[in-house]
Deep mutational scan, measured.
Amino acid sequence: VTLFVALYDYEARTEDDLSAHKGEKFQILNSSEGDWWEARSLTTGETGYIPSNYVAPV
């Protein structure tokens, strides 16, 4: 399991995006899409895309 933590708040801009709150942890499901990674929030269980530069490894 690849875990990352949000460094900043991010507000989803499309229905495919996933909002993130600073300190929230995510499981990365797919990081092969360049700057946008598919992730699952460990807080809400929701999945979507987050900007890779907004997260760091735990």
Score class of each variant (00 low, 15 high):
1 V>K: 11
1 V>G: 13
2 T>I: 14
2 T>H: 11
3 L>A: 05
3 L>M: 10
3 L>N: 04
3 L>G: 03
5 V>S: 02
5 V>I: 12
5 V>H: 04
5 V>Q: 07
6 A>K: 00
6 A>F: 08
7 L>W: 03
7 L>E: 03
7 L>S: 02
8 Y>K: 08
8 Y>N: 06
9 D>C: 08
9 D>K: 05
9 D>T: 06
10 Y>L: 07
10 Y>P: 00
10 Y>I: 11
10 Y>T: 02
11 E>P: 06
12 A>P: 11
12 A>T: 04
12 A>Y: 02
12 A>E: 03
13 R>G: 08
14 T>V: 06
14 T>I: 05
14 T>L: 08
14 T>H: 14
16 D>G: 15
17 D>E: 15
17 D>M: 13
17 D>I: 08
17 D>H: 15
18 L>C: 06
18 L>A: 01
18 L>P: 01
18 L>V: 07
19 S>K: 07
19 S>L: 03
20 A>V: 15
20 A>H: 04
20 A>D: 00
21 H>A: 10
21 H>G: 05
21 H>Q: 12
22 K>G: 03
22 K>R: 11
22 K>E: 07
22 K>T: 09
22 K>M: 09
23 G>R: 00
23 G>C: 08
23 G>H: 03
23 G>N: 04
23 G>D: 05
24 E>R: 00
24 E>Y: 02
25 K>G: 04
25 K>P: 05
25 K>E: 09
26 F>T: 00
26 F>L: 09
26 F>R: 00
27 Q>V: 15
28 I>R: 00
29 L>F: 08
30 N>V: 08
30 N>Q: 08
30 N>P: 04
31 S>L: 10
31 S>D: 13
31 S>Q: 14
32 S>K: 10
32 S>L: 12
32 S>R: 10
32 S>F: 09
33 E>D: 15
34 G>S: 13
34 G>V: 10
34 G>F: 08
34 G>E: 12
34 G>M: 11
35 D>Q: 09
35 D>R: 06
36 W>I: 10
36 W>Y: 14
37 W>Q: 03
37 W>C: 05
37 W>A: 03
37 W>I: 07
37 W>T: 03
38 E>H: 13
39 A>V: 15
40 R>V: 13
40 R>K: 13
40 R>Q: 12
40 R>W: 07
40 R>F: 10
41 S>R: 09
42 L>A: 05
43 T>R: 11
44 T>M: 01
44 T>K: 03
45 G>M: 06
46 E>G: 07
46 E>D: 09
47 T>V: 14
47 T>I: 14
47 T>D: 03
47 T>W: 09
48 G>S: 01
49 Y>P: 01
50 I>M: 04
50 I>P: 02
51 P>F: 07
52 S>L: 05
52 S>A: 13
52 S>P: 06
52 S>C: 13
53 N>P: 05
54 Y>D: 02
54 Y>V: 15
55 V>A: 03
55 V>G: 02
56 A>I: 12
56 A>S: 09
56 A>E: 09
58 V>K: 01
58 V>H: 07
